[in-house]
């Protein structure tokens, strides 16, 4: 063991370059700036969400009043249960930019209710989606620009920077478009830090005529869904040989991300690094009903 102790000494003698503390400090400052920006955004988001919630409640109230008071209105609504004929998803805005070798492509979706009875229910969600897409693109560009500045300041050249080929992408994916559900994912990623991927999910129930929460799709039973996920994690660990971080997971809560798949089953989504090593990527757990 004497040998090992000597070896430890030579390991500890690996010289530490002066640049190390500078580079670490640079990252900390970048992160601090992001922290501040995030705090402001969270505040803004809260205000926006509050407004949306009020608008959504107002629309639901109108709809339910209609159902209770008018027989014909209820029948009319009952006759059009297919999402295919009551709503559609369109690309509202699509653009690409290329500034200082930071390439951005953005596709912003919008949901349109064809049925006039449901008209208005989509407004809040559309607003949120729009704000999310614009904000993600803006923040990702600012992050990449900071990265570029730091890269050039630490001796990188413009050519080397261009070779990084930074790409920012905001897009959407319709997860389910069945007679019962419309489920959509809106996502943002950048090519240089898988750490900063973000996504939002929305699921509309055509029969109930409302946007669903996690409790709605799990019939209020978060507990058994959580047990289900935990047993799926054990299975995935066996298959991949990777160790998931389920012991650090605080459990399934109402704000967990989810969508409904084509089979009508809820799927809970975890971002990279949320519950498993980043290398394992995004994790999805289907709860088969």
């Amino acid at each position: 063991m004497k040998e090992m102790e000597d070896t430890k000494k030579s390991y500890e003698n690996i010289p530490i370059p002066a640049e190390l503390s500078k580079r670490v400090q640079l990252e900390i400052e970048k992160a601090n700036a992001n922290q501040k920006r995030k705090a402001i955004h969270i505040q803004r988001r809260r205000i926006l969400m509050k407004k949306t919630a009020i608008a959504a409640t107002a629309a639901v109230v109108l709809l339910t009043t209609g159902l209770n008071t008018s027989q014909t209105f209820a029948q009319e609504l009952g006759g059009i249960p297919v999402v295919g004929s009551i709503a559609r998803v369109l690309t509202f805005r699509s653009y690409e930019t290329d500034k200082t070798d930071i390439k951005t492509s953005v596709d912003i979706p919008t949901i349109e209710m064809i049925s006039t009875e449901l008209d208005g229910l989509e407004k809040g969600v559309n607003k949120e989606i729009y704000a999310f897409c614009e904000q993600y693109a803006e923040e990702a560009q600012a992050r990449a620009e900071e990265y570029r500045q730091a890269f050039l300041e630490t001796g990188g050249t413009e050519e080397e920077w261009a070779a990084h080929d930074i790409k920012i992408k905001v897009w959407y994916d319709v997860k389910a478009f069945t007679g019962d559900y419309l489920s959509i994912a809106v996502m943002g990623t950048d090519s240089w830090s898988n750490a900063s991927a973000d996504a939002k999910y929305y699921t509309f129930d055509a029969k109930a005529g409302k946007w669903l929460t996690l409790s709605d799709v799990l019939d209020g039973d978060l507990k058994s869904a959580e047990e289900n996920i935990r047993s799926q994690i054990v299975q995935k660990e066996k298959e991949t040989g990777m160790n998931f971080w389920d012991e650090d997971w605080g459990g399934l809560t109402e704000d967990a991300k989810f969508y409904v798949n084509a089979a009508g089953n809820p799927v809970i989504v975890f971002a990279p690094y949320e519950i498993a090593p980043g290398a394992a990527g995004q994790q999805e757990f289907e709860i088969i009903k």
Binding site: E19, L20, A31, N34
Partner: peptide, 14 residues
């Protein structure tokens, strides 16, 4: 240096 810098960036973001 790059490895440590990337690690700090990712850890603070997450």
């Amino acid at each position: 240096l790059d490895a440590v810098q990337n690690a700090v960036c990712k850890a603070l973001a997450h």
